[in-house]
């Protein structure tokens, strides 16, 4: 059930949409807050995201085929050559997932394996292969990224300028996986590419 929260920094009323966000970024003053027992605690300022025209806007509803969803949060990562946005979206049924957007390349992602057993980042080579879910996947990108800003509600604590390594894998029938190396934690996300021309406003 969505509730109204008051920003401790500026008094702005924040309408909480997701069930249990850990982080809420105030749209008025850009303060980042941890949600603790129904109250917001200020943890500092988040970088203001440079507004480029985007296919999504926060709190507006969209549809991809039968799936209706609403972006409620966004994290932007810089990967050197550019950036991509990870939109935290809430579907009509209340399920939350991620949609990554990089200049028209859009993928819906969900956590597939927490702490997956894969070789260390340094031992991975672009063009090499990894077996995931008994599927032979090819490494197509090996890079690091930096979190450069956030908006809205997010399910985890964000640390501006936090950097982590990742690899992108592509398999048969365009199955894709992203493996994130964040310290000792190695998470694996399974992705499904979608066509931006199939997305409409709901």
């Amino acid at each position: 059930m969505p509730v109204n929260l008051t920003c401790p920094s500026c008094g702005n009323i924040i309408n909480q949409v997701t069930r249990s966000p850990q982080i809420v970024v105030c749209s008025a003053c850009n303060s980042t807050h941890i949600l603790n027992s129904g109250r917001l605690e200020d943890v500092g300022k988040s970088a203001i995201l440079t507004e480029y025209p985007s296919i999504f806007e926060l709190y507006k509803s969209y549809r991809h085929k039968d799936w209706k969803f609403t972006p409620v949060g966004r994290v932007r990562y810089d990967y050197g050559d550019g950036f991509w946005d990870e939109w935290y979206v809430r579907s009509d049924g209340g399920k939350e997932s991620w949609v990554s957007v990089d200049e028209g390349e859009i993928a819906i992602e969900a956590l597939a394996h927490k702490n997956i057993q894969v070789p260390p980042f340094d031992e991975i080579n672009v063009g090499g292969t990894l077996m995931i879910n008994r599927i032979k996947m090819t490494v197509i990108e090996k890079n690091s990224c930096t979190m450069i800003g956030a908006q809205g509600e997010l399910p985890f604590k964000i640390v501006p300028n936090d950097t982590y390594n990742y690899i992108d894998l592509l398999g048969p029938r365009r199955v894709s996986f992203t493996i994130e190396y964040q310290g000792d934690v190695i998470d694996c996300y399974k992705g499904v590419w979608i066509d931006p021309f199939d997305i409409t406003k709901a």
Binding site: G82, E103, I199
Partner: peptide, 30 residues
């Protein structure tokens, strides 16, 4: 269908071979 909050910015530079004017209109994946 698009959120057009900010217009695309035109960037200009000179060709590093002939010095001719080049305008950049694409995104970071160019």
């Amino acid at each position: 269908m698009q959120s057009q909050k900010a217009a695309a910015k035109l960037k200009s530079l000179k060709c590093t071979q002939c010095g001719g004017a080049i305008e950049l209109r694409g995104g970071h994946n160019v």
